[in-house]
Design a protein around this nucleic acid. Sequence first.
DNA 1: CTTTAACCCTGGAGGC
DNA 2: TGCCTCCAGGGTTAAA
Length: 275
Amino acid sequence: MPELPEVETTRRGIDAVATGHVLERMVVHESRMRWPIPKDLPDLVGGQVVRACKRRGKYLLIEFDQGTQLIHLGMSGSLRSVQNGELLRKHDHVEWHFSHATLRLHDPRRFGSVLWHSKSDGPVEQHPLLKKLGVEPFDSIFDADWLKKGLAGRQVSIKQALLAGDIVVGAGNIYASESLFRARIHPKTQAARVSLIRCARLVEALRNTLSDALDSGGSTLRDYVNATGEAGAYFTLHAAVYERAGEPCRVCATPIKRIVQGQRATYFCPSCQKI
DNA sequence: CTTTAACCCTGGAGGC
DNA sequence: TGCCTCCAGGGTTAAA
């Protein structure tokens, strides 16, 4: 799925289309997503003004006066703006119709979700899916100390701890590998054994990896399409290790290795990255 | 408490 | 132009 840069790119795209405008109609073509899309959601938001389009981790938050829609893109989701009346494609599951454009959620695997959090249930940050999320990577509170404290007592690998998202959000499977490469940390290093110095390196590496991806349009994915429908090529052009097993490290030419951690592929340079 | 692995689902790639 | 296996951006959930 879209990792944080892709989600943020999407947020900017839909913000430009939706914020301050009346959502004339929401249409659900397929409600069987990660969780069923609530049946009463279209009636709840139809005719309402979109007040803001925000993001928390990889969740998109569409704010209305009565509450917030939570949208997750899962592994294969994309949310893009199309001209009103553009032909529906296979796997276009949800539409948000505005007078000047339509937003479409396209998600072949349907791991994504569209949920509702009513204002009467308190701040959206308290939603069960959001309240356990770690800090945002660009929040100033996220520093070496924060990371070190978060890793304390964890027996899992640093790769898995980073991916878990309960210390810091935003590192998906691609950027977890890429960030560890930049920080020169071996992905199998025990989380609790990562030193403060290396935590500092990892904080910087994660931020640099994410902001580089954001600068190039948040487009790590083979078939990724951002909110305006523009495909990107950051990943194919710039990945240092991801999906490069057997190919030479861009720094030292040692063949990149692929291992499996927690049922997910990890890529690293066995020479540059130390335990 | 932490950790693990099953699971949700479609489609593309590659072997035969 | 078929069939089969493996793999893919995520993350919740039940079980150990």
